[in-house]
């Protein structure tokens, strides 16, 4: 797949402060790229450069093959941008808001009525079409802003903390929308603090700290590189000692933890936390072996905290 976002040695300095330092990254077309990092890591600065709002001190950046410094208008045509903090006009109706931005993106007037209706349907705000924008909840405003980014059918969506400040339901709705948009062929480049969102939907991740890109790749790749083992949770109905022996016998298990003492769950369920160094095939073999031995396995899952561990290992807690 071709790279739709590319930066080469991108650097932004404010006096002595390096907000972004020598960042080289590529995002492939169709990816959902999670740009993760602590506050002040340089995520917003990088996004502002990519959206033509800020001049880099040095280095280059291209979006959809266009240079952000040499062809800003071409870049703007290719992107939809949602900043981390954005305002709404207090004297505008929902449909007027979308119509206004569609006009700013040079969508012809004749197409705008249909477009506004489609966008409102997509973000589930059709029922609030004639309400004033400032009467919408934060989650609705976030969805409306997302609809706004789509007004000109861009190839890339650059979203700065799209789920910040939202309640859990609104967060899930935004996440589902991003997946839906990815299915519609958009490349999504978004920054977030919420690692659960990243684990759930991202096909690629970049971790930044103190302005530097400290790790990047697919979530699986990063886990493999940064965490030598994976944490698997196996829930059994009994025969724990037998299961432990079987696990150790694989040679890929480095540690087995059994929290509590005996029946630690509902209905006599016992959960074992297993540090496993094998790959996906190894996990499948492990499960197969337990089942073959007749050990009553009721649940097997991989620990989602792994991404937090990836993040903690990749970053050192430095803020530029």
């Amino acid at each position: 797949m071709a790279a739709i976002i590319e930066t080469r040695n991108l650097t932004k300095r404010y006096g002595k402060l390096n907000a972004v330092e020598d960042v080289t990254l590529t995002v492939e077309a169709g990816a959902i790229y999670g740009f993760v990092g602590p506050n002040g890591a340089g995520k917003t600065t990088t996004m502002r450069i990519l959206t033509t709002l800020l001049q880099p001190t040095s280095g280059h950046a291209w979006v959809a093959g266009r240079s952000v410094t040499q062809d800003p208008r071409g870049v703007r045509r290719a992107i939809g941008y949602m900043p981390d903090f954005f305002g709404v006009y207090d004297d505008m109706k929902v449909w007027e808001y979308l119509d206004f931005f569609a006009a700013c993106y040079e969508v012809p007037e004749a197409q705008r009525v249909g477009l506004v209706n489609d966008l409102l349907e997509l973000v589930d705000l059709a029922h609030r079409k004639d309400d004033f924008v400032d009467t919408l909840s934060r989650g609705m405003q976030q969805r409306l802003c997302l609809a706004r980014t789509l007004a000109h059918d861009p190839q890339v969506l650059i979203l700065d903390e799209p789920a910040s400040g939202l309640d859990p339901r609104a967060r899930v709705e935004i996440r589902e929308l991003l997946v839906e948009l990815s299915r519609l062929g958009k490349t999504i480049f978004f920054s977030t603090h919420i690692l659960a969102d990243v684990a759930e939907i991202c096909t690629e991740i970049g971790i930044v700290e103190a302005g530097r890109l400290v790790a990047h790749g697919t979530p699986e790749d990063m886990q493999r590189r940064l965490i030598p083992h994976r944490r698997i949770n196996i829930t059994l109905l009994g025969r724990v000692e037998e299961a432990k022996q079987a696990l150790q016998a694989t040679g890929l298990v480095t540690k087995v933890e059994e929290p509590g003492n005996g029946a630690n769950g509902d209905g006599g369920r016992i959960t074992l936390h297993v540090d496993f160094t094998g790959d996906d095939t190894g996990v499948a073999d492990l499960l197969s072996k337990l089942v073959t031995l007749g050990i009553p396995v009721v649940h097997l899952s991989e620990d989602t905290r792994d991404l937090e561990e990836v993040f903690m290992r990749a970053t050192k807690g430095i803020v530029s």
Binding site: R48, T51, T52, L53, R73, R76, R77, I79, Y81, P83, F85, F86, G87, V88, Y89, F101, C104, Y105, E106, C145, R148, H152
Partner: peptide
């Protein structure tokens, strides 16, 4: 001040 400036600046306006 309303934080709508960047939204406008990234359009084709």
């Amino acid at each position: 001040e309303r934080r709508t400036y960047d939204l406008l600046r990234t359009t084709l306006l």
